[in-house]
Amino acid sequence: MKKQTKWMMMLGLASVLMLSACNSNNNASSGDKEPGSNSESFGKQVKYEIIGIDPGAGIMKATNKALQEYELTDWKLIEGSGAAMTATLAKDMKNKKPIIITGWTPHWMFSKYDLKYLDDPKKVYGEAEEIHTLARKGLKEDQPVAYTFLDRFEWSSDEMGEIMTAIEDGEQPEAAAKKWADDHSDRVNEWIKDLKPVNGKAIKLGYVAWDSEIASTNLLKYILENKLGYKVTALQVEAGPMWTGVAKGDIDATAAAWLPLTHADYYEKFKGKFDDLGANMTGVKTGLVVPSYVDINSIEDLKK
Results as ranks from 00 to 15, higher is better:
residue 153 F to G: 04
residue 283 G to P: 00
residue 233 T to K: 12
residue 188 V to K: 10
residue 176 A to T: 02
residue 76 K to Y: 03
residue 75 W to H: 05
residue 71 E to M: 03
residue 145 V to S: 04
residue 229 G to Y: 13
residue 25 N to W: 14
residue 86 T to C: 00
residue 276 D to M: 05
residue 223 I to L: 06
residue 26 N to Q: 14
residue 79 E to N: 14
residue 94 K to R: 05
residue 183 D to I: 02
residue 222 Y to P: 02
residue 106 P to M: 07
residue 192 I to F: 02
residue 240 G to S: 11
residue 281 M to G: 02
residue 24 S to T: 03
residue 239 A to C: 08
residue 32 D to Y: 11
residue 285 K to V: 13
residue 53 I to N: 07
residue 223 I to G: 07
residue 199 N to K: 15
residue 130 E to M: 11
residue 257 A to Y: 13
residue 268 E to W: 00
residue 16 V to Y: 05
residue 175 A to H: 11
residue 211 D to W: 03
residue 146 A to V: 00
residue 35 P to L: 14
residue 147 Y to H: 07
residue 222 Y to G: 01
residue 231 K to T: 15
residue 280 N to A: 08
residue 163 I to W: 01
residue 136 R to Q: 10
residue 2 K to I: 07
residue 255 A to S: 12
residue 99 I to E: 07
residue 116 K to I: 10
residue 34 E to H: 14
residue 13 L to G: 12
residue 122 K to D: 03
residue 200 G to D: 06
residue 257 A to K: 07
residue 65 K to I: 11
residue 283 G to K: 00
residue 278 G to I: 01
residue 61 K to N: 10
residue 44 K to T: 14
residue 57 A to G: 06
residue 73 T to H: 09
residue 203 I to K: 03
residue 20 S to V: 00
residue 148 T to D: 09
residue 241 P to K: 12
residue 4 Q to G: 00
residue 222 Y to S: 05
residue 180 W to R: 01
residue 186 D to Y: 13
residue 137 K to C: 06
residue 225 E to S: 10
residue 248 K to N: 10
residue 107 H to K: 09
residue 196 K to E: 13
residue 4 Q to I: 10
residue 227 K to H: 15
residue 288 L to F: 13
residue 239 A to N: 09
residue 261 L to T: 12
residue 57 A to T: 12
residue 171 E to P: 01
residue 156 S to W: 09
residue 217 T to V: 15
residue 166 A to S: 10
residue 116 K to T: 08
residue 63 T to K: 02
residue 182 D to Q: 14
residue 88 T to Q: 10
residue 47 K to A: 11
residue 49 E to M: 03
residue 4 Q to N: 06
residue 150 L to S: 02
residue 173 P to T: 00
residue 103 G to K: 02
residue 279 A to M: 05
residue 226 N to P: 09
residue 237 V to I: 15
residue 281 M to Y: 04
